[in-house]
Design a protein around this nucleic acid. Structure first.
Lengths: 332, 332
DNA sequence: CAGTTTTGTGGAAGCGCTCCCACAGACACA
DNA sequence: TGTGTCTGTGGGAGCGCTTCCACAAAACTG
């Protein structure tokens, strides 16, 4: 492996000049810059990242932390989209993404050790739960971090972006109410995630405002099978429901299966709305009326928030909340 | 951030002794080891990975390279399982996995630069295509690498594990022949991947041996939608087929949808077999007769092959081929 | 044209760590 | 008592890079 020294020697300049030429090139004559570039090419030189980060105290890489079981990570399009956008946005600054998938427990300990160890310059956290306490941990470590989705614990200490889940759920539930549903159930997300709690709160707010009952609630887990199972429980305990607000499209797809098996026609017997609009909602039968979860925008914004920390521009925790947008299809 | 120097000072030993105590601890007295451990604890010391790898010339991390579009990576359970097993196996040696998802083009250039740059000690490559030429590139770089699935180009230069796809496809096609199918079609994988080519070869071998025609072939892309589309073409061009060998269960699931829409009963009108058995095969209607793709074993073996390179145990490229195993369900 | 600023350059320090090597002391054996 | 082995220790070099600083030369000032 060629070193900077060899490049400098071949180019006929000092190591300092070669280094300057390679990084940005300010305060370097055109002649020297050319000579260095030529030497780099002919030697096939690549800077040693360890040596570089030893002195710069940067690693030029950022962790994307997903505290979930890998089955779920790979089954939910949410993560694919988010990872894609984050990777793209960071690539523009030549930052490499290191994906850390770790469910609570021993793996999480490894992950925290990794984050504390200085392997990365910062972290983007997504799909966090109350118990993982990642906001507290990261704030404790002092690692620049940016959360996608409001953390339930320690939110005041960290930067985050969040969709206005309460408003979104309220509005989409109102669609059900306006079309005449009088017995509206919900399948919520996990109660240890802000998206789960907030969407349930929005559903409740809409029903309260309309003077309707809010007892037909079953907790789901943001998986398709979980949605199906929750729907069965709902049908058993509340056979009279004529409207259903499901906290994610993936769960709604499962719920539609259960409704189909139970012989309920959608939307005639029961109107259904979902949440997310990440592609699945278009492909279910019938296609889902849902709320757009602007994860592309959120991911981009989360990257921006992280970069502002890395650049030292912003020091005080910022939050950015995105307004919901309804998408009407035929399920309600 | 505390340094080794501070740890050593607090423990009352030299930096050399502290370093020895932290790494393994051979040739260190129990007293010194305890003092260092206590100092590490009280200071919350973590070794600086950059400084360490500058001298050890190791990074203790390994790349998992997936040259695919991220949609496909996240839609196919194959990757989730593989990543899971690889991560677990490497964690036992305290090696961190860095996931690199890069489709051909500019992203791939970035990825190769990253691999060349010495960021990782080795690479596990999965789902490679002929055109990405990863085997040649990695052999050229001289980076220890281990492929899951035989590379189409440069296979002689690298370590790899491979299922015996030809044998597997032949045997599962024989199931169709034995149950009386006389017009057997196939939906293949991509023609630029060994799994695509070999499974088609096995299908052809079985039909040739039985003296049956081998013209009902349509190329698929290992996605569910691709399988559905391919099946429609097959039904249009060869409406008389009574048997279908699909090169992956995911594509077979798509094919079943198309068959259902065309009013063909499975297995009565047309018997169908798949490939992989990664969970999907159990959940289709009807459940698929398929071939088990031992990706857990393959991934573990690939890690072993990689570690043998990192340890310097083996220098000459090795290959490990896994025998197929039929799984009979009701689709054929 | 002397004085000032700007530009380009190289010497050298130092980032935090591992590991080679020399060495002191403990112990064993003849 | 001398010789040899083994154990534990610390000094110090050096991994490859960036960056501070001093300095010379060139380019501007009035």
């Amino acid at each position: 492996m060629p070193t900077l020294d060899e490049v400098a020697r071949l180019a006929g300049v000092s190591r300092a000049t070669a280094s300057r030429a390679i990084n940005g090139g300010s305060r370097v004559s055109a002649k020297a810059a050319d000579a260095v570039a030529e030497a780099v090419r002919s030697l096939g030189y690549t800077p040693n990242p360890a040596a570089r980060s030893l002195v710069t105290r940067r690693t030029d890489s950022v962790a994307m932390v997903i505290p979930e079981a890998d089955e779920r990570v790979f089954a939910d399009p949410f993560f694919a989209r988010t990872l894609h956008v984050v990777t793209q946005a960071l690539a523009q600054r030549d930052l490499q993404v290191v994906l850390l998938i770790a469910q609570p427990g021993q793996e999480m300990q490894r992950t925290l050790r990794y984050l504390r160890g200085g392997h990365v310059d910062g972290a983007i956290v997504v799909s966090h739960h109350r118990n993982d306490a990642l906001a507290d941990h990261l704030a404790g470590i002092g690692l620049p971090a940016s959360f996608i989705g409001r953390p339930l614990a320690g939110a005041e200490k960290v930067f985050y972006t969040d969709p206005d889940n309460v408003a979104g759920a309220r509005e989409v539930t109102n669609i059900l109410i306006e079309r005449g549903c009088r017995r509206v159930g919900t399948i919520t997300g996990p109660a240890d995630m802000s998206a789960g709690i907030d969407r349930a709160a929005g559903w409740r707010a809409a029903l309260d405002a309309a003077g309707l009952a809010t007892d037909a609630l079953v907790e789901g887990d943001f998986t398709e099978d979980g949605g199906e199972a929750a729907c069965e429980i709902l049908l058993r305990d509340h056979p009279d429901i004529d409207g259903l607000m499901v906290a994610s499209d993936l769960m709604a797809a499962g719920a539609l299966r259960a409704l189909g098996r139970a012989g309920r026609r959608v939307p005639d017997d029961i109107a259904v709305v979902g949440y997310d609009d990440l592609g699945i909602a278009e492909r279910t039968t019938p296609p889902l009326t849902t709320v757009k979860n602007p994860i592309g925008d959120m991911a981009r914004e989360a990257v921006r928030l992280l970069l502002s920390q890395l650049d030292g521009t912003t020091t005080h925790p910022l939050r950015v909340v995105f307004a919901p947008e309804l998408v009407r299809r035929t399920s309600a």
